[in-house]
């Protein structure tokens, strides 16, 4: 559950961006890494309050996402209808962030002091307090995100674009403004996930690509572009990993997960919650 909640935060951001823009954000893992480094510097190095550092992580990565949307994706989406153009652009931004992270943050693994030290003994299991805190924060953030999407005007606007952008535009939704908002919110979720998980997993400049791959697996399982699907995909992957690693030697676990995903997609390419028509 703990692993699933963490993964859900990552998957929610990538699925939101896909839903409103049709862009597979390959740079999502790199945005997660950036969020982790911001928390590392502010909380780990400069001693800022952890929650303020988390806020700064999400704000910084949201600003980066906003800049990418405003300077790159908006123009490409306007001048071309070919999906591979945005995919190539997304891959380019991923490489750019990857290289910049290495240059700016260096090659070393970075970790921060535990936010909640200690271990809880629950029934027959030992659960680190830090992981419990991450779990609670992740659940709170997921809840806040769902409430935002369901009950606020911008949330409704984003959902309208995800369902039918032409109809949304005809109803007065400003597509450019809401796409920018969606990209920033999606990026902010990656940033906050990075800030949360740096406390347990640490972070390094090369960690982005594996995170992106996991995020893609989650949204493929749950259904790309569907918020509830992203959460479901994250929980499924989290459970599969935790159970697999516990009972089966390491590398066989991921082999079985990937085989399972391939077989699943053969029979249900739209994922669990996705719509067959896109």
């Amino acid at each position: 559950m703990i692993l699933g909640a963490n993964y859900a935060l990552i998957a929610l951001g990538i699925t939101l961006i896909f839903a409103i823009m049709g862009v597979l954000n390959f740079a999502h893992g790199e945005m997660y890494v950036l969020g982790g480094f911001v928390t590392y510097y502010l909380y780990g190095r400069f001693g800022l309050n952890y929650f303020l550092a988390l806020l700064a992580s999400s704000a910084t990565v949201a600003a980066v996402g906003l800049a990418f949307e405003r300077l790159c994706f908006r123009r490409v989406l306007r001048i071309t209808t070919r999906e591979e153009s945005t995919m190539l652009l997304a891959a380019g931004t991923a490489l750019l962030l990857d290289s910049l992270s290495l240059v700016v943050f260096g090659e070393k693994q970075r970790g921060v002091p535990p936010v909640a030290p200690g271990v809880y003994h629950v029934f027959n299991a030992f659960v680190p307090a830090g992981r419990v805190l991450i779990f609670v924060l992740a659940l709170g953030l997921i809840g806040a995100f769902l409430l935002f999407m369901q009950y606020t005007r911008p949330g409704r606007g984003l959902r309208a674009i995800a369902q039918d952008k032409e109809a949304a535009a005809l109803m007065g939704v400003n597509l450019d403004r809401y796409r920018a908002l969606g990209f920033a919110v999606g990026a902010a979720l990656a940033g906050v996930a990075g800030g949360l998980l740096v406390t347990e997993f640490a972070v390094n400049a090369g960690a982005g690509t594996p995170i992106s791959i996991k995020a893609f697996i989650m949204i493929m399982i749950g259904g790309a572009g569907v918020v509830s699907g992203a959460i479901l995909g994250a929980v499924v992957l989290g459970f599969a990993e935790a159970v697999g690693y516990f009972f089966i030697p390491g590398s066989v676990t991921y082999l079985l997960i990937l085989i399972g995903v391939i077989v699943f997609l053969v029979f249900r390419p739209q994922g669990i919650m996705g719509r067959p028509w896109g």
Binding site: L3, F201, T209, P210, I213, P249, G250, S251
Partner: peptide, 12 residues
């Protein structure tokens, strides 16, 4: 026991 390159969560 082995793990994949890029693993971030080593607890399991």
């Amino acid at each position: 026991d082995t793990y994949e390159p890029g693993t971030s969560d080593f607890t399991p």
